[in-house]
């Protein structure tokens, strides 16, 4: 049945018995949670203020979208009464679109016909509110799918700008770090070149010394004499004197 003239259609709910057996609000919540869980929705992962929570019966999260549910509590006997009460309900739900991406009004399916006759699908589409009907057996039907609100998107956009700004700052920091590392790398590679140069000179020196050592005659008696007479216990020497080649050279001075 075409309700709004822009292509939105009320889906007809399961209109079984007129007595609603699901009296408790908790019963409603359970079936809604189960229905949306099957679609991949979860409990909300973000903090929502206490004031807002008080205004809704249930909040779920679908990917990045926050879904709010208000359960229609009124007991009405005529279409006129239903109109008055559902208008109030829509008004409250409209305020919630400032905070949530999608807002649903949940009605017992016994009111489906009344809803069809008194609610304008076009207006609900404009304000971004959906209607869900639940029957006494706990079957859920989405009569009108809400459109995500533009305001929420704008707020999301604001968040993205912040994130992008933060990312830019981090990229700048990384660039600075990269530049300083590049400079340090240059200095280090220069030092390594120097070390390599020194090493090759030392190698040459060792080669020369090796050559000289091989031609020297062995003089055990002198070494033994020096060893016995003059070598100081290494632990008594200050650190700069330990393994200092000058100790031996200076000890031989007079003999030279």
């Amino acid at each position: 049945m075409n309700m709004s003239g822009i292509g939105k259609v009320w889906k007809v709910g399961i209109s079984g018995g007129s007595v609603l057996e699901m009296n408790s609000i908790e019963d409603f919540k359970e079936v809604i949670i189960e229905h949306f869980r099957r679609r991949g929705c979860t409990r909300p992962q973000v903090d929502i203020s206490e004031d807002v929570i008080k205004q809704v019966d249930l909040v779920l999260q679908d990917a990045n979208n926050l879904l709010a549910f208000r359960i229609f509590r009124g007991i009405v006997y005529s279409a006129a009464e239903f109109r008055v009460m559902i208008d109030e309900e829509i008004l409250r739900a409209t305020k919630l679109t400032e905070v949530f991406d999608k807002v649903y009004i949940v009605i017992p399916d016994t009111y489906t016909d009344m809803a069809r006759s008194v609610i304008s699908g076009r207006i609900l589409d404009e304000v971004g509110i959906g209607i869900i009907a639940v029957d006494e057996h706990g079957n859920v039907e989405e009569l009108l799918v809400p459109r995500p609100t533009k305001l929420t998107r704008r707020e999301l956009g604001k968040g993205i700008e912040e994130i992008v700004g933060d990312l830019r700052r981090r990229i700048d920091e990384i660039e600075l770090l990269y530049n300083s590392l590049k400079t340090e790398f240059g200095v280090l590679s220069e030092k390594i070149t120097k070390i390599e140069r020194t090493l090759s000179m030392l190698r040459e020196e060792v080669d020369v010394l090796k050559g000289k050592l091989s031609t020297l005659p062995t003089r055990h008696e002198i070494i033994e004499e020096i060893g016995e007479k003059t070598l100081a216990p290494v632990e008594e020497l200050p650190s700069f004197a330990k393994n200092n080649p000058w100790l031996e050279i200076l000890r031989k001075r007079e003999r030279e």
Binding site: T230, A241, L247, I249, R251, R253
Partner: peptide, 9 residues
């Protein structure tokens, strides 16, 4: 100088 003092016999 200290190493010198320690080492010169």
């Amino acid at each position: 100088a200290l190493v010198y003092a320690i080492a010169v016999p």
